[in-house]
């Protein structure tokens, strides 16, 4: 059975691109375009990994990260942050708030796939 990855990003073409890349690597991919959609997905799903953008149209990725860490059912789901923010402070904060990894945009395929492979099987 293939691993299932939830991608949360408000840019349709980013969602599309990640979908294309991860599918070709054999992952099953579910997409959410914002905080609300992500919460809806997570309420009925238990993905093997969440790829999470921090700046979303309807709120902040930080809120989704906190939801996940505080939910008994989902607290072990690894989260990889996918963000254009590359400051050490932001990366440090993400890791201390429970993110498993951090990939800065723009990224090449191997960076994305590497992070997904490392963390999706790591839990």
């Amino acid at each position: 059975m293939s691993s299932r990855v939830l991608i949360v990003d408000d840019e349709p073409d980013i969602l599309f691109m990640i979908k294309v890349i991860l599918r070709s690597e054999g992952y099953e991919v579910v997409a959410a375009s914002g905080v609300a959609e992500a919460r809806a997905q997570l309420s009925e799903d238990n993905p093997d990994l969440v790829l999470l953008d921090l700046r979303l149209a309807d709120g902040e990725g930080w809120d989704v990260l906190r939801d996940l860490r505080e939910d008994g059912r989902l607290e072990r789901v690894p989260v990889v942050i996918l963000s254009a923010h590359a400051s050490p402070g932001t990366i440090q904060r993400a890791l201390s708030e429970g993110a498993a990894g951090y990939v800065t945009k723009p990224f090449v395929t191997s960076e994305l796939v590497g992070a997904v492979r490392e963390h999706a099987y790591g839990n």
């Binding site: 840019e11 073409d13 980013i14 599309f16 691109m17 990640i18 294309v20 890349i21 070709s24 254009a84 945009k105 723009p106 990224f107 090449v108 395929t109 191997s110 994305l112």
Partner: peptide, 29 residues
């Protein structure tokens, strides 16, 4: 610039795979 660059870099590195052409979503990519 980062978002469009992400898509261009991500998709173009994916499309280097010779099998990418066989993907039914190739035109959308």
């Amino acid at each position: 610039l980062r978002t469009p660059l992400s898509v261009v870099i991500g998709l173009s590195s994916h499309l280097r795979n010779p099998k990418a052409v066989e993907d039914p979503e190739f035109p959308e990519q």
